[in-house]
């Protein structure tokens, strides 16, 4: 029982202290956020579950999952009903979080460096960075698409890894599923739910 109390207390303490406010400047925002994530994922005192909770919290707070969901839906977002879009958004969020935690849980230690930022418009900035793997592998260039409509709260919309946009890849994957199911959004929702449950 004592162990359980300590465990629950440590989870509460972890959750309450895990998310900190990051800078509103896109360059500093990415730098602070990624440094924090790297530190947490490298922390040997945290178990897998704690790391996954942290990743989910960060994603819900700092990734524009709603816009990402609409983008990946493509043109269908304009012709689908509000109920369908709402159902899709719920499934997409669960899918996105599961997929993200799965990718990041295999994280191996790396160094991270911001290269530059390019303000494309009033609403978005591309922050360029590179990851230097500790295992001696080649540097990986990552561009961050940051949405800045609310200048006080920048949000991540896409990661472009070595020129490959994760959002675009996802969009084209969904387009293929929709195309083979007569553009039925419900078929896509079923596929997303199946992924979450597996």
């Amino acid at each position: 029982m004592k162990k359980l109390v300590v465990y629950l207390f440590s989870i509460f303490f972890f959750l309450s202290s895990s998310l900190q406010a990051y800078s509103s400047n896109p360059r500093d925002f990415v730098n602070d956020l990624v440094s924090d994530v790297i530190a947490k994922l490298s922390d040997k005192n945290l178990n897998k579950e704690q790391k996954e909770i942290f990743i989910e919290e960060v994603a819900l707070e700092y990734v524009d999952i709603n816009a990402l969901g609409l983008y990946t839906l493509g043109e269908l977002r304009k012709s689908s009903s509000k109920d369908d879009i709402s159902g899709y958004q719920k499934s997409f969020e669960k899918y996105f979080l599961k997929s993200l935690t799965s990718r990041l849980s295999e994280y191996s230690s790396s160094k991270f460096e911001i290269l530059n930022e390019d303000k494309k418009s009033a609403t978005y900035t591309i922050v360029s960075s590179k990851v230097i793997p500790d295992d001696g592998g080649p540097d990986i260039k990552i561009d961050w698409r940051i949405y800045t409509k609310d200048p006080d709260k920048p949000l991540i919309r896409d990661l472009i890894v070595e020129g490959l946009s994760l959002a675009r890849t996802q969009k084209e994957e969904f387009a293929s599923i929709l195309s083979s199911n007569d553009n039925d959004i419900k078929a896509l929702i079923i596929k997303l739910e199946e992924f979450v449950q597996n």
């Binding site: 020129g163 890849t169 084209e172 994957e173 293929s176 599923i177 992924f195």
Partner: peptide, 14 residues
């Protein structure tokens, strides 16, 4: 969810 399409997208982007 559809590996074939993901690889196609990555190939074309690359």
């Amino acid at each position: 969810i559809d590996l074939y399409s993901s690889i196609k997208s990555i190939y074309l982007q690359d």
